[in-house]
């Protein structure tokens, strides 16, 4: 962590509210501390932010560009607006793109009722997708003894990649391929069950926002994701 930034105290306005913060905090963390909700998908407390999903974009006065709240540090005098009609519109369209990208059939999905993507649709008032669904033919990898990976539900948030590398230190997960062909993979795109690096710790299962990674033998009612990873990361920070 950048110590000079951490020792700076900055003041800024978020949605008109005066906020005080340390210089090494992101717009997102300061907003949340102040009870202002900014929707996020790829962000996960305790993991490095990558600014991939673009759901958390906010406006900063004086700049024509939009900034990802999860990966932009606050600066002195910043005036942030988090929920303008323009942002709401963009967020909804980004969600539509995500739903259209792969095969989401919530009714028969093991994460039905516990899914962050599904919940985000509800939260942002998305009742239908105006773009045509792409219906790609994707693989389900059930070779692991305890877990299943289902490409049909993956939103490429890279939480699994980050948790495995940053918290578990195993680096089983990675992303392969470019653009619309990008896929989350285990090891060098080998079956998960054949992985010699996977410790079966289950962290990826619990940070995955959707049913792209789930536990075998769990029904939709049981497949609740737990947040122990954030607690783990927070504790480590204290001891470091």
């Amino acid at each position: 962590m950048n110590s000079t930034l951490a020792s700076q105290i900055v003041t800024l306005k978020i949605d008109g509210k005066d906020c005080g913060a340390r210089g090494d905090e992101t717009i997102l963390s300061v907003a949340r501390e102040n009870g202002i909700d900014i929707p996020t998908l790829c962000h996960y407390d305790g993991l490095t932010d990558i600014g991939a999903c673009r759901i958390c974009l906010v406006e900063v006065k004086g700049s024509p560009k939009l900034f990802a709240a999860c990966s932009t540090l606050v600066t002195e005098g910043m005036e942030v607006s988090t929920n303008s009609p323009r942002l709401q519109r963009y967020r909804k369209t980004i969600l539509e793109l995500l739903f259209s990208e792969r095969n989401h059939v919530c009714a028969v999905c093991v994460s039905n009722g516990h899914c962050e993507l599904q919940a985000m649709a509800m939260k942002l008032g998305l009742t239908h997708v105006r773009l045509p669904y792409r219906y790609p033919n994707l693989k389900v990898d059930a070779t692991h003894t305890r877990y299943v990976q289902d490409d049909n539900r993956c939103i490429l948030c890279q939480r699994c990649v980050r948790v495995c590398a940053e918290i578990e230190g195993a680096h089983v997960w990675d992303i392969m391929g470019r653009g619309i062909e990008a896929r989350a993979i285990t090891d060098l795109n080998e079956p998960w069950g054949a992985s010699t690096s996977c410790t079966s710790c289950g962290k990826c299962v619990h940070v995955c926002p959707t049913a792209a990674i789930f536990e075998k033998g769990k029904s939709a009612g049981e497949m609740v994701k737990r947040s122990f990873v954030s607690e783990l990361a927070a504790k480590r920070e204290v001891y470091e």
Binding site: C53, L97, Q158, I180
Partner: peptide
């Protein structure tokens, strides 16, 4: 579309659409 790195949603899915 084919050169998009696939990291962010607007470019990855948007170029395809």
């Amino acid at each position: 579309k084919s050169e998009s790195c696939g990291k962010c949603v607007p470019c990855r899915v948007g170029t395809s659409q």
